[in-house]
Amino acid sequence: MKRLVATPWGVYSVWHRHAKVYQRTWLVNFLPPVTEPIMYLIAFGFGLSPLVGDVIYAGQPVSYLRFIAPAMIAIGVLFQSFFEGGYASFIRLNFQKTWQALLTAPLSFTEVFLGDWFWAATKGMIAGTLTGLVAVIWGLYSPLNLLLSLPLMLLGSLLFGAMGLLTAGSVRQIDQINIPIFLLIIPMFTLCGTYFPRETLPPFLQTIATVLPLSSLIDLLRWNLGLPSYWWLQFLWLVTLMLIFVSLAIRKIYPQLIK
């Protein structure tokens, strides 16, 4: 592989292209996925709160809504960045041939890749922030909490965006995107301490759930409720996974474009 060349303008220009498409079609693209975590928050919050009451988290009783609010932010981040990196990038790569078109302009592979990746992360940030704002308005998360959580959300968005891009680069048919969704995304969505503390799971499942990256992101986003003693390991785990996934994604996509 040739040396990686990227200029800020090139990366921005690719990102700008995706943002313009989004702007054009935002009503179609924007409402359903962004409202999804907000709907979970409302539905599970109202529906389960009376049944559950308080949850014990980090040794403290916490209201159920305050418990799930940070997890819903993480789910917004997960879904939006993964689907943009996986599904939308797959379409840009294999159907619309957007990547191929961009590579006839004075843009390097690295610029096109980073532009796509950062756009996937941007979508995660949009969903996470909007869900966070709902939580803030609801009084479940303080504005300062949300502000200080932005870097964590960015890390999560980059990680799940890279997972999406690895998926886009690995699958041959669009239906195959369901494989990581069912093997990884849905288990994370349900098991990673989103709707209940992981301690209630059997030890074996608990270990698996803890290793899955959404657990680390959710635990870190719950920093206002208390952090696990190994939080720095969780942070490093997210960074490491992000680097692994992004380098694997590059390895998968590069040979499809530069033959």
Binding site: Q96, T98, A101
Partner: peptide, 11 residues
């Protein structure tokens, strides 16, 4: 000008 029409259908 590549063989395929890779225009942006959203624009």
């Amino acid at each position: 000008v590549t063989q395929e029409d890779n225009l942006d259908p959203d624009f």
